[in-house]
């Protein structure tokens, strides 16, 4: 579904991603871990199409289309969803109205009629229950005055409503207490299915305990330096990133 080949990307002239490659198939959950500054969030931004990031080399195939040629909104309508690390506030626009506008844009793109009011409300109710999201939040301005946990749950709630093909969770676990983490993980797990691929960007093992990724990749200095199964995350948690650095050193000197 997603095939990233040798991506180089820079911001303000500084190269952050230096030849990153990654293949993600439908139904898979991939975790991307790595120390601060390794390029994890840059990867999320490049995939979503943030224009401050310049891609200087490489290709990204997304469901048969060249992702890099699509605008951010086209990527979204093609089924790419980014759960933001820092969701923004939009005063005066209720979560309901916002998600309605987004959903109908996507449906229009797919050649579908806007969802009728009754079906839309039913969908909202169902997904809000899944994320244990208080209904009053839906009528409040988007993310305004939401707690950190509410914002993150709202992201996953939007994911649930928009039903994407590929979701990128950008440090969704940061700033969450243990209960919120559990709810978010439960939400994501419920939406795990054969046609939905998920990339989890995180610093920590704890979200992965709940999500049980199929693959874990270590990102360092703009490149994936090690890949493995979920046990790799445990190893990282235990030994830190240093052991990988040492391994790299050894392979260089060998």
């Amino acid at each position: 579904m997603l095939s990233i080949k040798n991506i180089h990307a820079s911001i303000e002239g500084k190269e952050i991603l230096k030849g990153l490659s990654l293949d993600v198939k439908a139904g898979e959950v991939h975790a991307i871990m790595g120390p601060n500054g390794s390029g994890k969030s840059t990867l999320a931004s490049v995939l979503a199409g943030r224009e401050e990031y310049e891609v200087t080399e490489g290709t990204i195939d997304f469901g048969g289309k060249e992702l890099l040629e699509l605008s951010p909104e086209e990527r979204a309508k093609e089924g790419l969803f980014l759960a933001f690390q820092y969701p923004v506030e939009i005063p005066g626009v209720s979560t309901t109205n916002f998600i309605k506008a987004a959903l109908n844009e996507k449906r229009k793109y797919q050649g579908l009629e806007p969802l009728d009011a009754a079906s839309f409300l039913k969908l909202l109710k169902e997904k809000a229950a899944l994320l244990e999201l208080d209904k009053s939040l839906l009528s409040r301005s988007l993310n305004e005055g939401f707690s950190g946990g509410e914002k993150k749950r709202n992201e996953i709630f939007q994911m649930a409503v928009l039903d994407p093909k590929l979701t990128i969770l950008d440090e969704t676990d940061s700033g969450l207490d243990i209960d919120a983490l559990r709810i978010v993980a439960k939400g994501v797990n419920t939406l795990r299915n054969e046609s939905h691929a998920i990339i989890v960007i995180t610093h920590y093992q704890r979200l992965l305990n709940y999500l049980q990724p199929d693959f874990v990749h270590v990102l360092m200095n703009g490149r994936i330096v090690k890949s493995g199964g979920k046990e790799l995350a445990l190893e990282l948690e235990e030994k830190g990133y240093d052991f990988i650095k040492e391994e790299m050193q050894e392979s260089l000197t060998a």
């Binding site: 979503a48 199409g49 943030r50 605008s71 951010p72 909104e73 990527r75 979204a76 309508k77 969803f81 980014l82 933001f84 820092y86 969701p87 923004v88 939009i90 916002f98 998600i99 506008a101 987004a102 844009e105 996507k106 793109y109 939007q158 928009l162």
Partner: peptide, 12 residues
């Protein structure tokens, strides 16, 4: 940031 957030949800 606000613009990008909306665009990421499919709004031009």
């Amino acid at each position: 940031d606000q613009l990008f957030y909306c665009e990421q949800r499919g709004l031009d």
